[in-house]
Simulated assay, not measured.
Amino acid sequence: MAHPPLKAVTLTHVRYQKGDHLGHLLAWISLVPVFISLGGFICHFFFRRELQGMFFALGLIISHFISDFIKTLVQQARPETCIFLEMCDSHGWPSSHSQYMFFFAVYFTLLTFKGIGLTKVNHKWARCFLPWLLAVLTMQSRVYLGYHTVPQVFAGATLGIFLGAAWFWVVNYKLFNFFPVIEESRFGRMFYVKDTSHIQNVLEFEYDNARKARKEMAAKSN
């Protein structure tokens, strides 16, 4: 009895030519979306529980499904190098990696210039440089490693920029009004979900309050 072809989970399955140091570097850069998702947003949920970060992550998830839907609709093949990469069974337009990283870069930049939780931090342009650099390098890595064509990564970048800006507007000018309701809801109180968007500098606020609480505890114990 013939068995259907097997398909691997390709979460970190990125190939490059042996001995190609630039390809090796770009292969790791190509995994930046995985690091952001697993190391960034999952850790953020467990340790921070801030609504702004949770809706940021939700936007990335929604944009990923939109990208996959477009891929299925258009069904544009990947470049011929997909044979060596074992990726010919998936579509290439638009590039999901490019879409993810440019969504992240746009949303992060808009958050930074809106000053949510970071008002007193200077050099906003310098702080936004790294996300945009990683986005461009990720886009380049997908072409260099043979996973996408140039039009496919530019389509992904364009989609990411549009969805990132649109989702930022939805969250911060529409859904933002419901943040206090979510914070005070049964779900919010059960999982310690909070909104710190109204605090000018979250790090300074938490630092000062932690020191204040420790001093008060020390005073009570004496």
Rank of each mutant, 00 (worst) to 15 (best):
F162T: 10
V74S: 11
L110C: 02
V14Q: 12
F104I: 11
G59K: 09
A105N: 06
F129G: 06
I42S: 02
G117D: 05
W132I: 02
R211I: 13
A57M: 06
L137R: 13
H97I: 07
N201L: 01
V121Y: 15
K71T: 12
N209Q: 02
L31A: 08
T196C: 12
G146V: 05
V9D: 09
E50H: 10
W93T: 12
E204S: 01
G188Q: 12
V153I: 02
L60P: 11
F46C: 05
W125K: 13
A126V: 00
A155G: 14
E80H: 00
A2P: 14
K174Q: 08
P180Y: 09
C43A: 03
F35I: 10
G19N: 09
H123C: 13
L159T: 08
V14G: 02
I161L: 14
Q17K: 11
Y192S: 12
L31M: 11
N177T: 15
I199R: 04
I29Y: 00
C43D: 02
H44I: 09
G92H: 01
V170Q: 06
Q52T: 14
T109I: 13
L51T: 04
F154Q: 08
T196A: 05
F35S: 15
F35A: 12
Y192M: 02
V202I: 03
M217D: 03
L73K: 07
H198V: 00
F168S: 06
G40C: 06
S197N: 00
S185Y: 02
R49P: 07
D195C: 01
C43R: 05
F108A: 13
A219F: 15
N172D: 07
S141L: 03
R142K: 13
L26A: 08
T81L: 00
S98T: 04
Q200H: 07
L73C: 05
R142Y: 08
M190S: 03
G164V: 15
R186G: 07
W93H: 09
F178E: 04
N209D: 06
